[in-house]
């Protein structure tokens, strides 16, 4: 590989290198090339989807790999004018927000107990939650549908939110516990001397101080819910919810089956469904990565 040889030669003998970038670095252009290639491969298919959304179907099938000729905004206009699409955006937003709020609230309360109370069974409680990392949805999806059916939650947004909260709890608690642990004991003593109860300490001091950790778990829960497919498939679709009540991933799939003849229309729908995730989640990249690291490492 040329990249490595070029780099090996450059900083080696000539001069003791200090920091990359301080002098002319022959590796630099190679690095740009590699990084650009990786970025192009990553973004290429996504760009293709967006651009092909501007094509007509006959044009698409004449040359599937070509550029739009002519460009048309019809597909995008049609999707954006489709109330079902907006209802699905709403469904995704409401269920993702519900999941996020639920997970943050239940998670921080439980993590507070694990982090700041000494009691018998604390270790067990913590182990109980961490084991949950090994219980992914795939395993319990069948009984879960049976359970939701009996609770009359099948086919409803609640039936989606509550299990999502439950399944996000392990990660949340693993991330939050060290955060809450790190709050100095003096703060708590001071609060207690001022006459606050433990609960008061929790509300007035712990919650604000754990905001960065809460944001991280919130972002993770939101992304997880926004992109979820398996649970909505079983809870909403199998539960008989109308397609307007589907979340976006499910809605995209439904659209691609129902209007599959319209390939560029499907591509436009897919592109618009991708857009919110790309806009918001790439901005939250640091939190997502930090969160994933934290989820495993603690």
């Amino acid at each position: 590989m040329t990249a490595t040889t070029a780099i090996t030669v450059a900083p080696g003998k000539a001069r003791p290198s200090r920091r990359a970038g301080q002098r002319f670095d022959w590796g630099q252009p190679v690095v740009y090339l590699v990084a650009l290639a990786v970025a192009a491969i990553a973004v290429g298919p996504v760009l293709y989807v967006f651009i092909s959304g501007f094509r007509t179907n006959p044009d698409f099938f004449t040359d599937p790999a070509g550029m739009p000729n002519p460009w048309t905004t019809d597909n995008y206009a049609r999707v954006l004018g489709d109330p079902t699409f907006w209802r699905q955006v709403l469904a995704s937003t409401v269920t993702a927000l519900g999941t996020t709020i639920g997970v943050m609230l239940l998670g921080v309360m439980a993590a507070f107990v694990i982090a700041r109370y000494e009691f018998k069974g604390r270790g067990l409680l913590y182990a109980l939650f961490t084991t949950g990392l090994l219980f992914p949805l795939t395993i319990s999806i069948l009984p879960l549908t049976v359970l939701l059916r009996q609770l009359d939650l099948f086919g409803t947004w609640w039936g989606l939110i509550i299990p999502q909260v439950a399944f996000a709890l392990p990660t949340t608690i693993i991330i939050l516990v060290p955060f809450l642990r790190a709050i100095p004991g003096e703060l708590e003593e001071a609060a207690l001397i001022d006459g606050a109860s433990r609960i008061g300490f929790f509300w007035r001091i712990v919650l604000p101080l754990s905001m960065p950790g809460l944001m991280t778990v919130g972002v993770l829960a939101f992304v997880g819910s926004w992109n979820a497919y398996l649970l909505p498939l079983f809870v909403l679709q199998a539960g008989g919810a109308a397609s307007e009540d589907y979340t976006l991933p499910l809605g995209v799939q439904f659209y691609s089956t129902a209007y599959g003849q319209d390939t560029t229309g499907v591509l436009a729908y897919t592109a618009l469904a991708m857009l919110p995730a790309i806009l918001f989640f790439t901005l939250a990249e640091k939190r997502i990565v930090g969160g994933l690291q934290g989820a495993v490492k603690g």
Binding site: L90, T93, V94, L97, G98, I101, G102, D152, G155, T156, W157, W158, I161, L236, G239, G240, A241, A242, D245
Partner: peptide, 17 residues
């Protein structure tokens, strides 16, 4: 209700089908 920000409260009874 979701528009007024009560996203969670809005979900009550949203039984489809």
């Amino acid at each position: 209700t979701a528009a007024t920000g009560l996203a969670v409260a809005a979900l009550t009874g949203c039984t489809a089908g």
